[in-house]
Amino acid sequence: MNLDKKIDSYLEDVFKDVGPSQQLFDLKQELRVNMKERIRDYKETGMNDDDAFREAKVSIGDLTGLVEDMRKYGQQETKNQIYSSMTNRISSGFIVLGVMLVLFGAMMTLSMFFMAVEPVARSGVSIFIVAGGGILVYGILARETKTRYAMSKVRAGLYALATILILFAIFVGTISGLASKELFVAITSSMFFLIGGVGLLVALLLSRGQSLKK
């Protein structure tokens, strides 16, 4: 068993009788990170994995007070569902709005093809897809499900921004490509947004924490 798993199962064991709550989830994350760092320090003094882990467990002290605290939150969780369902209602609103915008953009783009307008003007309405896509991503990520806790607003917002940047890159590329009839114009004009969007997305994926419920 590697060290990360050991820490996880130790924390699971300490809080095994405690009902799940956002507070417990956060506390475990906090304890996990600090414990890891402490073990790293112990190992630097020459201790092996097992000794470092044992020492870290001992010096963390008596966690019963915190367990008791968390138990109260677990019991309150039923009451908190009002809050949860409120955030979920907001997220549902975002999802509906996002889907509607994407659909609207798609239908408008489609119908433009049957109109006698410039090709550039045809895809102009696709901007609704860009906005809708971003809102949709935010709505999905900010939602608490049975298996996953709601992502923080900031993080969900950043994911939405990444989506918007990537979609906007495609949009700009298409528009400028159609306007100039040159492929390189399309690529260069979308490059900035695409790089920004993908960069942000990769950064977000790499810094992903553990958000899966047990």
Binding site: D26, Q29, E30, R32, V33, N34, S207
Partner: peptide
């Protein structure tokens, strides 16, 4: 607030 460490999990 949560830190933005990418290595070894975020600190509080």
């Amino acid at each position: 607030y949560w830190g933005d460490e990418t290595q070894g999990g975020r600190r509080k």
